[in-house]
Design a protein around this nucleic acid. Structure first.
Length: 573
DNA sequence: TGAGGTACTTAGGATTCCAATG
DNA sequence: CATTGGAATCCTAAGTACCTCA
């Protein structure tokens, strides 16, 4: 077997890699012994441009704070945010508050941001048009800064930090119908930040002169380096600063996640047996538990925690409403609801007859806004799962089903002689099936249609030149001089044959590309690759089939999954 | 048992990068 | 050499899960 992945050399008797160590178990209790880092840094202060806002054709000069917020709005103009009702309404309220009730500015509709918007546009152009050396220098100084403070030291090992710059101020872009979309996200100061470092390690210096961190703690039961209250959702949300995906903290948890899913694989037959039991003959609560778990297992639904009034109204399995389900003939149901990120789940599937009957009963006598599963909660469902395995919870089913599906699909591969590109396409097809199972979507790229047409045209051209080549070849065969004997056509029969082969592969590749593009129009492949499919399945498959790993895992994924790179070709999920 | 808090994973869109193309 | 479009990465919102406390 060729070694297709370049790996750090292992030294005899010395193991510096966490995934080769034995002490992974106590990670669940104590995460580290020493932790050292440079804290967080803050986005640059706002620099005013002193361009006025016009109100009833009158120039209004703004304070720096008002101007900054007005400038945010200016860059929203022309995007769909500008006309999004909640966003606009919330912004107006927030914005007017900055002026006070006796100020003449009383309505967003009458505000004219044109001059500021022009300025924003010009600045954008200026930034884009910077000379390349300047851009390069900027990039380099950014890298240097990152090199200096973008790393922490955990138990003596240098680790990348994922987010050292705290979130800049701006307008809150909540997704879907988020009740707080358009709120002002205020600027964070050192006084908002709690720092976590080792007791005997240096406390990071506050980067803003004359200011100080809110607090410094030494909590080694957690993996975060710092946290702050979210400026918009401060009542509930906390933002953490963590190490990057390549770190031991993240990698080890990731590995444990997949190991848990593999354990579920060993139990799944018993679990399915048990929930079918519950579906059939138990009391109402158990009927709901069994039926909900059936949907989670079969359709890879999220568990669906309750949400508060201050969030977009989305659902998962346990929070499904009567209006989200409809019943079709042949034991089919249609689920239609907005899930995480307000992405629509819309699917018609046949279900087990008992499930179908249960669901019909759950709906009986309820209004459209009432809960389908009114007798259970996500906690009670997870409690039920704990009876099978102490660390089992609903989300493990998504991981398990995604990984099992990938393993099964890749297991069908038996085309070792394929071109690498075709092998990659096979992999992508499997990836897509998983993504569809998990309902990972993306919006159709802008001017997708135009680009498809362009590619179609190109393909047509390629067919035409293939035709010409074949005619040219016939010329040789009938011993006539080909009429295209000039310029761009090959001068020998052999070369013509070669050119034909080249043209054919080129057409084939183009067709593959075209099909992939269309198939992937609305399917997001990345999410399942990053979060759901055990990377060892992919690594083993690549090794077995001589596909270089970088064809399927870009750099960031190779370092995230460094622990999986040593997987043996014979490994199975 | 339910609400709120905490810590972590998962998610799509925006932005940036980079290589192919004219 | 500039443009452009797809891939890769960045950003931060939005989930899950579990704990504590009344």
């Amino acid at each position: 077997m060729t070694e297709l992945i370049s790996l750090p050399k292992k030294r005899k008797g010395e193991s510096t890699n966490w995934w080769e160590e034995d002490e992974q178990d106590d990670f669940s209790i104590q995460k580290w012994k020493s932790l050292e880092h440079h804290g967080v840094i803050f986005p640059p202060d706002y620099i005013p441009h002193n361009i006025p806002l016009f109100y009833d054709d009158e120039a209004i000069s703004l304070t720096s704070e008002q101007e900054e917020v007005a400038t945010w709005w200016s860059s929203v103009i022309g995007t769909e945010w500008e006309t999004k009702e909640i966003f606009r309404k919330n912004f107006e309220q927030n914005f007017l508050k900055l002026f006070g009730s006796d100020h003449q500015i009383k309505s967003l509709d009458k505000c004219d941001f044109k001059k500021i918007a022009e300025y924003v546009e010009v600045q954008r152009e200026v930034k884009k048009a910077r000379p390349p050396e300047e851009k390069k220098q900027e990039r380099e100084s950014k890298q240097k800064l990152d090199e200096e403070i973008g790393y922490g030291i955990v138990d003596g090992k240098r680790e990348k930090i994922s987010n050292i710059i705290v979130e800049p101020p701006g307008l809150f872009r909540g997704r879907g119908q988020h009740p707080k979309a358009g709120y002002i996200k205020t600027r964070l100061r050192p006084e908002d930040i709690t720092i976590n470092v080792g007791k005997s390690n240096l406390v990071p210096k506050c980067p803003v002169p004359g200011h100080a961190w809110k607090n410094v703690v030494h909590n080694n039961y957690v993996t975060w380096l710092a946290y702050y209250k979210d400026p918009v959702l401060s009542f509930s949300n906390v933002k953490y600063v963590y190490l990057a995906a390549s770190s031991k903290f993240k990698g080890l948890n990731d590995k444990l996640k997949y190991e848990k899913a593999r354990k579920l694989k060993g139990l799944i037959d018993g679990i399915r047996h048990d929930y079918f039991d519950k579906i059939k003959k138990d009391n109402q609560v158990n009927k709901q538990l069994g039926t909900a778990l059936y949907l989670i297992d079969k359709l890879a639904l999220r568990v669906g925690n309750e949400k508060t009034e201050d969030e977009a109204d989305t659902v998962g399995c346990c929070s499904l409403k009567v209006s989200n389900i409809s019943f079709k003939e042949n034991c089919q149901i249609t689920l239609d609801f907005l899930g995480k990120d307000s992405m629509r789940y819309f699917n018609t599937v046949p279900v087990d007859p008992n499930v179908h009957e249960n669901l019909r009963k759950f709906v009986e006598g309820k209004g459209p806004d009432e809960e389908l599963f009114d007798l259970i909660t996500t906690s009670s469902l997870n409690e039920y799962l704990k009876t099978f395995m102490k660390s089992l919870s609903a989300k493990v089913f998504r991981t398990y089903n995604a990984s099992v599906t990938l393993q099964m699909l890749l297991g069908k591969f038996n085309h070792k002689n394929m071109q690498v590109e075709e092998k990659v396409q096979f992999y992508t097809d499997a990836n897509r099936e998983v993504a569809i199972l998990c309902n990972h979507q993306k919006s159709t790229p802008k001017n997708f249609e135009v680009q498809m047409e362009k590619m179609q045209d190109k393909l047509k051209d390629k067919f035409e030149s293939l035709n010409l080549l074949e005619t040219h070849l016939k010329g040789f065969l009938s011993k006539k001089i080909a009429q295209n004997a000039d310029k761009k056509f090959p001068t020998s029969e052999e070369n013509t044959r070669k050119a034909i082969v080249r043209a054919k592969t080129s057409i084939k590749n183009m067709e593959i590309k075209l099909k992939m593009k269309d198939d992937n129009k609305t399917v997001a492949l990345g999410t399942s690759k990053i979060n759901y499919m055990d990377p060892r399945i992919t690594v083993a498959w690549c090794k077995n089939n001589e596909v270089p790993i970088e064809k399927v895992f870009p750099k960031a994924l190779r370092s995230k999954f460094i622990w999986a790179m040593y997987t043996e070709p014979s490994w199975e999920f």
